[in-house]
Design a protein around this nucleic acid. Structure first.
Lengths: 229, 229
DNA sequence: GGACTAGTGTAGCGAACGCTATATAAAAAC
DNA sequence: GTTTTTATATAGCGTTCGCTACACTAGTCC
């Protein structure tokens, strides 16, 4: 034991609860009272452990990144860029609609635009999103070296495109899109990573989504109008 | 003149200013003090004209939709789905990085997740986003009827995919992406709307972005790391 | 044991929040 | 003119915000 009275709460469990609140209500929408209630502690414990509300957010984001990196590591080790992207997007469709988490992505729902006194929160979230983009860019650069992607392809642009799709899926998910709807978006996004006919014998579905999901399309309009209402 | 003392401020100009504040700081980050200062009025005038902070947001969103519909009307009248999408995405890349507005999209930056007492703000924004998605779906249904899109294509899924891309571009823009970076995303997104070889003689660039933008790719990594910093 | 260090619970700080009571000013109605 | 109606400016309402002073407790160190 280090010194003084030992901490009575589990830091990581508390951070998981804080993460959930930030995710669900955004940084500015999450109040200290709500956070401490969810974490099962009192304000002084929060401030002695994390310094400030923003410090708590950063600690929660670190934990978020930690979990995400574990997933990303597996995905990035897929043999081809196409498989990396396909698995990444389909897994994100699952994660962003997983009932264990709030819908969408913490790095997007946390707050894209904040008020006075929280100006660097959007910046902080953007930095975390950029990390994933950088990982993808590096993976695509490797794919070019391996002749997996054509030499004229722009790894940075492809990574940025994926970054946009991922964020967009997060927005859709946070407004109630279903898992299958997100999977359709994922499969359509994949089009940009398909080798064109003549280069390789492989040909995938082009404009429509996969057959497996086609049956779902009947009620999508109804679901869309629910989101609209 | 109707009755009583006439209003001294221009409602639409005031709404434009309010829109700017909501756009820049989000719903929860925008304070009444900041809004009234930007609108050049005092709180009682705001509340007599718009009822509440949320009422002001809705009025600002109505004005936003009004401007957006004017743009959408022209775009949707392009002859083919491909041209609709191309013009839409490229124009959005311009709009979301136009110095006359805050970066990104009000319907995304306004608030994806809000705290207690503002629960229906994210819902309201989602409904406005869904409207654009519905317009696109209807346009793609028409394109199918005109044999402009293949009969097996899923208009709703394509519209949802675009909705994701648009939102994603908004996220990127709000974290400082440049106009050219967004244009690259737009062109890559367009891949999902290209007829495949064998169907039509036309062939566009496949994986890399257009040649016109290729020259920009050299400093994109640097710009990305600025976003990261 | 006593000194020291650090976490916990209560209770509440000052500031900012969304919003409004009140008095006054500017127009139409008569 | 007087009355009626609505907008404006000042000033401040009650509440909630992020955060902390304080007293106390649970440990290590000697």
């Amino acid at each position: 034991m280090t010194l003084g009275r030992p901490r009575e709460f589990d830091t990581q469990k508390a951070l998981d609860e804080a993460m959930d609140i930030f995710w669900r209500h955004g940084y500015e929408g999450a109040t200290i009272a709500e956070l401490t209630a969810a974490m099962g502690i009192n304000p002084p414990s929060l401030y002695s452990a994390f310094g400030s509300k923003e410090g708590l957010l950063k600690a929660a984001l670190d934990r978020y990144a930690q979990k995400r990196d574990a997933v990303m590591h597996d995905i990035l080790s897929e043999p081809t860029a196409h498989e990396v992207v396909k698995r990444l997007l389909l897994q994100l469709a699952d994660l962003q609609t997983d009932a264990k988490n709030p819908p969408g992505c913490l790095l997007v729902a946390g707050g894209l635009a904040c008020g006075a006194g929280a100006e660097n929160v959007p910046f902080e979230l953007a930095a975390r999103r950029a990390r994933t983009e950088d990982q993808l860019r590096d993976r695509f650069l490797r794919a070019k070296e391996e002749d997996d992607l054509p030499p004229h392809s722009d790894a940075a642009a492809l990574a940025r495109y994926l970054s946009a799709v991922i964020a967009g899926m997060g927005v859709l998910a946070s407004s109630g899109a279903s898992r299958d709807e997100l999977r359709e978006v994922a499969l359509l996004s994949l089009t940009a990573f398909e080798r064109k006919a003549g280069k390789t014998p492989k040909r995938k579905t082009s404009i429509s989504s996969s057959k497996a999901l086609a049956a779902e399309s009947g009620n999508l309009i109804a679901q869309t109008s629910v989101r609209t209402g």
